[in-house]
């Protein structure tokens, strides 16, 4: 257990020392600021008031989930696996007295921590930005829930990228394959809406089912989507680990 903790701290330390997370934080802040500015201009010039108040964080969430956050999940996960294998720095980690299962788990935990931190940062920034926008009401609890539950589909996506990073030989092919698969899944959801539930990316908007928090919630739908996502997470984790464990240096 102590070895897992040490490996996890090391992964977080590596993330902290890389410029990518600072770029992610800066771009998140800039995106929120641009979103707030657009909302303000629409309100000022067109008189549409539906964009203000606590609705703003919910307005920003799907846009950033599908673009910036997913993109940085790809960057981080590709770097953790394909990047380390191609630079051979993985040897440093693999020669420590830690089993490959713990190393794999520590990397996944670090990726999930990044996702959580990035979402929380966007939530806080968008809540602050919404203070300067015309308020149209809304629940802070819903905003928090929406951002929190969005960690789950992003974790499934991160594990898919990790699986791809262990299958491909270089960082470029891992990155390109991940982005293409993400776009393909999103495209197939539109072409075959009846089968969208089988693509985990369709769960990106499952936070909308928490909108009635405090009132009536569609527990059946939430449970079904939760099971679909945890199913994907289990499958991607198992496959990713199996390939990682068999890798030869």
């Amino acid at each position: 257990m102590n070895n897992l903790k040490a490996a996890y701290i090391n992964e977080l330390f590596k993330l902290y020392k890389k410029k990518k997370i600072y770029v992610a934080a800066i771009l998140s802040a800039v995106s929120v600021a641009i979103g707030a500015l657009i909302s303000f201009l629409i309100k000022s010039f067109m008189g549409i008031s539906a964009l203000g108040g606590t609705n703003f964080p919910i307005l920003v969430l799907p846009v950033l989930l599908n673009t910036l956050v997913s993109l940085f999940v790809v960057f981080i996960c590709v770097d953790m696996f394909a990047g380390e294998f191609s630079a051979n720095t993985i040897k440093f980690t693999l020669t420590t007295p830690v089993s490959r299962f713990k190393i794999f788990t520590s990397k996944v935990l670090a990726a999930v921590s990044f996702i959580f931190a990035n979402l929380m940062l966007i939530m806080v920034l968008s809540l602050i930005a919404s203070l300067f926008l015309p308020v149209s009401g809304g629940s802070i609890l819903y905003v928090f829930s929406a951002y929190l539950v969005s960690v789950l589909p992003l974790t499934a996506f991160a594990l898919m990228v990790i699986l791809i990073s262990n299958l491909t030989k270089g960082t470029t092919s891992a990155f390109m394959t991940s982005v293409i698969l993400f776009l393909l899944f999103r495209g197939l959801e539109l072409v075959f809406p009846a089968y969208s539930a089988i693509f985990f990316t369709s769960s990106y908007d499952w936070y909308t089912y928490f909108a009635a928090i405090g009132g009536y919630l569609n527990y059946g739908k939430i449970l079904r989507l939760f099971l679909v996502q945890t199913g994907y997470i289990t499958v991607f984790f198992t496959l990713g680990y199996t390939i990682f464990d068999k890798k030869q240096i």
Partner: peptide, 17 residues
Amino acid sequence: PYGYLTAMENMKMYARF
């Protein structure tokens, strides 16, 4: 070792185990 880290930072990562 990790090139973007200093020698001591690399050592500290190893030392955690």
